[in-house]
Design a protein around this nucleic acid. Structure first.
Length: 341
RNA sequence: AGGAAUGUAGCUUAGUGGUAAAGCAACGGACUCCAAACCCGUUGAUGAGGGUUCGAUUCCUUCCAUUCCUGCCA
C-alpha cells in the first residue's frame, strides 16, 4: 500500500503565524518525504458554522495562496478544495451510517465549540469528525499531520475504518482486499510541535478569534505591523535566561523564544545561547527583524497570487481533477462493497 | 406543537416618553530595558418593521432571534 499524506486547512478568517508554523510550513517538509501529498482547503468543514459566501470564496483562495507562497509544489503534489471532489460528501454519508452517535458524543471539540447551546449547533458541526474521516480515507491516506486538538478526530477515523472493514468483511474479501479495505491512518507528529501562543497571553493559543489583533501576527501583516506587534508583546520583568530551564513559568518569554527558534530553524537552546542574559529591548527587535525577513516574502507572494484569482482557481481545479483520479476508484469500490448498484 | 420570558456597546449589566450610563474588553498615551499592573484618555449600543405621540430605546403591534417549562416524535 502506498504511503500518502492528507492534510486539511479550514478557510475561515485570517491566517496567522500559528497556522503557518503549526501546519502550513510543515507541508513543505512533508512533500520531500512522501511521494503523494494531498493538501486540501476544507471548505465543507468551514460551513459547519455560518460563513459569509463572498468571504468564504476569498478565504479559500487565500489559504491556497498561502500553501503556494510557503513553498508547496502544486504540480508534484495536489492542492485542491474539498467541495470540488464529491467523494468527500458521498463517503461521509456512508460513514455517517458506520459511525455511532456514542462516538460523536464523546468528541471534546464539539462540546467546546457548541458550548452551552448544543441544540443550536448545526448538524454538520456534530458530524464534522465523520467528514474528516471521509477526507482521509477517501484517498486511503496513511499519514495525517495532526495537532494535539485533532488527535481525537483521527482516532475516530481509525475506528470508522476498522468498523467498516469489519461490517463489510465478506464483500471486502471478495473484492480482493485481504487485510481490510481501509488502512488505519497514522498521526504524523512533526518533530518539535510548535505551539504558537498569543502575544498578549502566553497561556492562550494564538487564535484568529482573540479580541485583540495585537495578540497575533497575520500572514497579511506588513513589516511595520509585525514590528509593532512584537514590540507590544507581553513579557515579564526579567531578561532572557541562558538555559531553557530559566523559561519555566514564563509562558510569554518562552513563546517569543519558541517563535524565534521556529523561524530560524534552530532550537530554544541555540537561541538562548545567543540571547541569554540580554534584555527584551534587545531581543524583540531581533525577533521582529527575523519575523519580517521570514514572513514578508510569504505575505508578498500571497498578495501577488491573490491579484490573479483565476490562476488560483485554475490550480484548485487541476488539483481537484487529480484528487478525483485517486478517489474515484476508491469510491467505486466502496459503493460496490456496501451493495450499491 | 402549547405556554412563559428576554432582546441596550465585543461581553456583563443600568436607565428614561425629551442629548442612553457603568464595569470589563479593545485602541491610544504615560510609566517600563521591552512588556504587564497602576494612572490618563478615546472608540463603540437600544434586534427589524409598523403604529400612538410634537417627540419612542421606553407605550401598542407584527416579525425575527434567544432562553426556560410542558407536550409530541425518535
Amino acid at each position: 500500500m502506498i504511503e500518502r499524506v492528507f492534510s486539511g486547512v479550514q478557510p475561515t478568517g485570517n491566517l496567522h503565524l500559528g497556522n503557518y508554523l503549526g501546519a502550513i510550513r510543515k507541508f513543505v517538509d512533508l512533500q520531500q518525504k512522501f511521494d503523494s501529498c494531498l493538501y486540501c482547503v476544507v471548505d465543507m468543514h468551514a460551513i459547519t458554522v455560518w460563513q459569509d459566501p463572498a468571504e468564504l470564496t476569498k478565504n479559500i483562495r487565500e489559504v491556497t495562496a498561502s500553501f503556494i507562497a510557503s513553498g508547496v509544489d502544486p504540480k508534484k503534489h495536489i492542492i485542491f478544495n474539498q467541495s470540488q471532489v464529491s467523494g468527500h460528501a458521498e463517503l461521509a454519508w456512508i460513514f455517517n451510517c458506520v459511525a455511532r452517535m456514542g462516538w460523536l458524543n464523546r468528541m471534546t471539540q464539539f462540546k467546546e465549540k457548541a458550548g452551552k447551546h448544543k441544540e443550536n449547533a448545526s448538524v454538520g458541526l456534530y458530524a464534522y469528525p465523520v467528514l474528516m474521516a471521509a477526507d482521509i480515507l477517501l484517498y486511503r491516506a496513511t499519514h495525517v499531520p495532526v495537532g494535539e486538538d485533532q488527535k481525537q478526530h483521527l482516532e475516530l477515523a481509525r475506528d470508522i475504518a476498522q468498523k467498516f472493514n469489519k461490517d463489510f468483511a465478506e464483500p471486502i474479501a471478495e473484492a480482493g482486499f485481504a487485510d481490510g479495505f481501509f488502512p488505519q491512518p497514522d498521526p504524523l507528529i512533526a518533530g518539535t510541535a510548535t505551539r504558537v501562543m498569543s502575544l498578549k497571553d502566553g497561556s492562550q493559543k494564538m487564535s484568529k478569534s482573540a479580541a485583540s489583533d495585537l495578540s497575533r501576527i497575520n500572514l497579511s501583516d506588513d513589516a511595520e505591523t509585525i514590528a509593532k506587534k512584537i514590540r507590544k508583546a507581553r513579557t515579564d520583568p526579567d531578561g532572557l535566561p541562558s538555559e531553557e530551564k530559566g523559561l519555566e513559568g514564563r509562558a510569554e518569554a518562552r513563546n517569543l523564544v519558541n517563535i524565534y527558534a521556529a523561524l530560524s530553524d534552530s532550537t530554544v537552546e541555540d537561541v538562548l545561547k545567543q540571547y541569554g542574559g540580554q534584555q527584551f529591548s534587545a531581543f524583540k527587535p531581533a525577533l521582529s527583524e527575523l519575523a519580517v525577513a521570514k514572513m514578508k516574502p510569504i505575505g508578498d507572494e500571497m498578495n501577488r497570487l491573490m491579484d490573479d484569482p483565476g490562476h488560483i482557481d485554475e490550480i484548485l481545479r487541476d488539483g481537484a481533477v487529480r484528487a478525483r483520479e485517486i478517489s474515484q476508484p476508491v469510491m467505486k469500490a466502496v459503493k460496490g462493497i456496501v451493495g450499491f448498484i
